[in-house]
Simulated scan of single mutants.
Amino acid sequence: METAAENTRAAVAAMLATGVTTMETDLRHTRDGVAVLAHDETLERRFSDPRKVSDVTWWELDLMRDVDGERALRLDELLAEQPDLRLNLDVKTDPVVGPTLRAVREAGAAGRVCLTSFSSRRLATVARVTRGRTALGMGMADAFRLLAESRGWRPRVPGPTGRAVQVPLTYQGLRVVTPEFLATAHAHGHVVHVWTVNDPSEMHRLLDLGVDGLVTDVPAAAAAVFAERGLAVAPR
């Protein structure tokens, strides 16, 4: 977020103030099995504590404050406090899958979350449990299968688990988001979300190309771009 620290109530409020109603965030687990919003494996960058998120209990984490006086945010809190918020949730570890699914189920939020991960194996586990009740992203192995297919190859790997293909513009110097890649993904019934796009001109270019969604650190810029194009800021 451009006006507030990531994964805080202030960040959520700042995003909603722009008219954007879908938030992408990451989930990790505490030692006692609470799903919390956290990108980094350790607490160093935000709370100046070298321990891993998984090394502390929720009680310990709840006592910590960042430089803005904000504390960590639990997934179940966010779901309860923002009943209209849509969430794209990257489950960072295997142990956070259970607490995440429990929080989503107890909040009755299956219809407003998309669960994602770099791990195709982890997403396959989620798919077996959710049985189509929750939208899923696609692991990187499956995304690269689509990329290979778009370049004329036919890799022998299992088919993709999720409908949402969430990819960077480039990967290790290789351009991922091309007209051919989009055509291949769309032909298989997938939607393509591109991360992380902060430049308005690049947002326009990608929307012209046919991408279905953008992940950005500057929701105000994205909202302005969508407004210029007469598009609703809504998930697909």
Results as ranks from 00 to 15, higher is better:
175 R>E: 14
156 R>E: 03
198 N>W: 08
70 E>Y: 11
218 V>K: 05
15 M>P: 00
138 M>N: 07
71 R>T: 15
40 D>Q: 09
14 A>H: 03
92 K>I: 10
235 P>R: 13
184 T>S: 02
108 G>T: 08
138 M>L: 04
109 A>T: 13
147 L>Y: 15
68 D>G: 05
109 A>D: 04
75 L>W: 10
37 L>T: 11
115 L>F: 05
97 V>P: 06
25 T>G: 04
45 R>F: 06
70 E>K: 00
166 Q>D: 09
20 V>C: 12
78 L>H: 09
183 A>M: 02
229 R>Y: 10
183 A>E: 09
95 P>L: 11
37 L>P: 13
34 V>W: 01
213 G>M: 04
129 V>N: 00
141 A>V: 10
200 P>W: 05
32 D>V: 14
179 P>Q: 11
18 T>V: 01
95 P>K: 08
175 R>F: 01
55 D>W: 15
10 A>N: 06
123 L>Y: 01
40 D>Y: 02
37 L>E: 02
91 V>C: 12
116 T>D: 08
95 P>Q: 11
10 A>E: 13
192 V>C: 06
35 A>V: 13
78 L>K: 01
64 M>H: 12
70 E>H: 15
160 P>R: 11
82 Q>S: 08
192 V>S: 01
124 A>W: 02
215 V>H: 07
197 V>D: 11
18 T>C: 06
19 G>Y: 07
15 M>K: 03
208 D>A: 09
8 T>D: 08
111 G>W: 03
212 D>N: 14
150 S>M: 13
68 D>M: 00
30 T>Y: 12
229 R>N: 12
44 E>Q: 14
9 R>M: 01
135 A>Q: 12
56 V>P: 09
109 A>Y: 07
104 V>A: 02
102 R>Y: 02
51 R>A: 15
84 D>K: 13
154 R>K: 11
5 A>L: 15
177 V>T: 05
143 A>T: 05
96 V>M: 14
219 P>T: 04
160 P>L: 05
99 P>N: 06
19 G>P: 10
209 L>N: 09
130 T>L: 01
106 E>T: 13
205 R>I: 00
15 M>G: 09
164 A>F: 03
200 P>T: 02
187 A>M: 11
201 S>F: 03
39 H>P: 02
24 E>M: 07
77 E>G: 01
175 R>L: 09
151 R>Q: 09
120 S>T: 15
188 H>E: 14
114 C>S: 06
194 V>C: 00
163 R>W: 08
28 R>A: 14
197 V>S: 00
195 W>S: 05
63 L>T: 15
112 R>W: 06
198 N>I: 06
201 S>I: 11
79 L>E: 11
129 V>M: 05
189 G>P: 00
133 R>L: 12
113 V>Q: 12
228 E>N: 03
69 G>Y: 10
177 V>C: 08
60 E>H: 14
184 T>A: 14
157 V>D: 04
4 A>W: 00
184 T>N: 00
